[in-house]
Deep mutational scan, measured.
Amino acid sequence: DELVREILGRCTCPDQFPMIKVSEGKYRVGDSSLLIFVRVLRSHVMVRVGGGWDTLEHYLDKHDPCRC
């Protein structure tokens, strides 16, 4: 939770990309009902993408309208 909030807090946009914790390891992202699975691996916040894992920073770079 703290690492996810820290990464989201780096955004300086007036309207921050919403990530709402639904349950342990599950977050709702953006304005959709899309759920992502998150885990911490060796101090990196990882997001389940397709059949693999990606860093939360890279995921936000691709999906946050402010960072695109």
Rank of each mutant, 00 (worst) to 15 (best):
L56W: 01
L60A: 00
R48E: 10
H63I: 13
R48Y: 10
C68L: 15
R42M: 11
R39Q: 12
L8F: 04
P14W: 02
K26C: 15
S32D: 14
K21I: 00
V40Y: 09
V49N: 13
L3E: 05
D1N: 05
T55N: 10
R5L: 10
P18S: 12
L60W: 01
H63G: 03
R42I: 01
D64R: 04
R5Y: 10
G51M: 10
L35Y: 12
I36G: 04
L35N: 14
V49W: 11
C68R: 12
M19S: 01
G51N: 13
K62G: 08
S23N: 06
V4E: 06
C66G: 02
S23F: 02
V38W: 01
V29L: 12
C13F: 01
F17C: 00
E24N: 11
V4W: 03
S23R: 07
I20D: 08
E2F: 14
S33G: 14
D15G: 07
S33Q: 14
L41G: 08
F17R: 01
I20F: 11
P14G: 06
K62A: 12
L8N: 03
H58K: 11
R39V: 09
Q16W: 08
E2A: 09
C11E: 00
D15E: 14
G50M: 08
G30C: 05
V29K: 02
S43E: 15
C13I: 08
V38I: 08
G52H: 14
M46Y: 14
D1Y: 05
P65M: 00
P65A: 05
G52T: 14
G30Q: 05
D31M: 10
D64P: 02
T12H: 05
R42G: 15
D61F: 09
L8S: 05
L34G: 15
R5T: 12
V29M: 10
L56M: 04
T55H: 07
R39A: 11
G51S: 14
M19P: 00
L8E: 03
M19G: 02
R42Y: 10
L3M: 12
Y59F: 15
R67A: 03
T12R: 11
D15I: 13
V47G: 02
Y27E: 03
L3G: 04
V22F: 06
L41H: 15
R28D: 06
I36W: 04
V38G: 05
S33F: 05
I20L: 10
T55Y: 12
R28P: 00
G52V: 14
I7S: 07
R28C: 10
P14Y: 08
G9P: 02
G9F: 07
R5P: 00
E6T: 11
G9Q: 14
F17W: 03
M19E: 00
R39K: 07
G51Q: 12
V38K: 00
Y59H: 00
P18G: 06
L41V: 15
H58Q: 08
H44Q: 14
G51K: 14
S33W: 04
H58P: 01
D64G: 03
E2I: 15
R5V: 05
S32N: 12
H63Q: 05
V4I: 14
R28K: 12
S23Y: 08
M19R: 06
V4A: 02
R10N: 09
E57G: 05
L60S: 01
I36M: 14
I20C: 07
E2L: 13
G50T: 09
E6F: 04
T12Y: 02
K21S: 03
V40I: 10
V49Q: 15
K21D: 02
L35T: 14
G30P: 06
F17L: 04
R10P: 02
F37W: 14
D15V: 14
F37T: 15
G52A: 14
I7A: 11
T55D: 07
S32R: 11
T55I: 02
G52R: 13
D31A: 12
L56G: 05
E6D: 11
L56A: 01
S43D: 14
L34V: 14
M19Q: 00
F37Q: 15
C13S: 03
Q16C: 01
G25K: 03
G25Q: 11
P14E: 12
C11Q: 00
D31V: 10
L34A: 15
D15W: 08
S23M: 06
G25N: 11
S43P: 13
P18I: 06
Y59P: 00
Y59C: 05
I36L: 15
G52S: 14
L56Y: 03
V49L: 08
E57W: 04
G51V: 07
S32H: 10
V47C: 10
L56F: 08
R48M: 09
G52C: 11
R48A: 06
D31Y: 10
S32F: 03
G25L: 01
E6Q: 11
L8M: 09
P18A: 07
V45D: 01
M46T: 08
R10A: 08
D61T: 10
H44M: 15
R67V: 00
Y27A: 03
V38C: 12
G9M: 11
C66P: 03
H44T: 14
L41E: 15
R5D: 10
S33C: 11
L60M: 05
V49T: 15
E2T: 13
S32L: 07
M46Q: 11
P14Q: 10
R10W: 03
G51F: 09
V4K: 04
L8H: 06
C11R: 01
S33Y: 07
P65Y: 02
E6K: 10
F37N: 15
R48N: 14
E24F: 00
V49P: 02
R39D: 14
K26Q: 15
L35E: 14
D31C: 10
D31K: 10
S32V: 05
R48W: 07
Y27P: 01
V29T: 05
R48D: 09
E6M: 08
V29N: 03
S43W: 06
F37A: 14
L41D: 13
V45M: 06
G9D: 14
G30W: 00
D54N: 07
S23T: 12
G30T: 05
L8P: 02
F17Y: 14
K62L: 13
D64N: 02
K62N: 11
V49M: 11
S23G: 13
G52Q: 15
C13A: 00
L41T: 13
I36C: 15
H63C: 07
D31N: 14
T55K: 06
R10G: 06
S23V: 04
H58C: 08
R28A: 09
V4T: 02
C68A: 15
D31W: 10
V4P: 03
R67P: 01
L34H: 14
M46K: 05
D1E: 11
C68D: 14
E57M: 01
I36S: 04
F37D: 15
V45C: 09
G9V: 05
T55W: 02
R10D: 02
G50K: 12
Q16D: 01
L41A: 10
R5C: 08
C66A: 01
K21F: 04
E57I: 04
H63M: 10
Y27W: 14
D31F: 08
L3I: 11
D64S: 00
H58W: 03
E6V: 04
L3C: 11
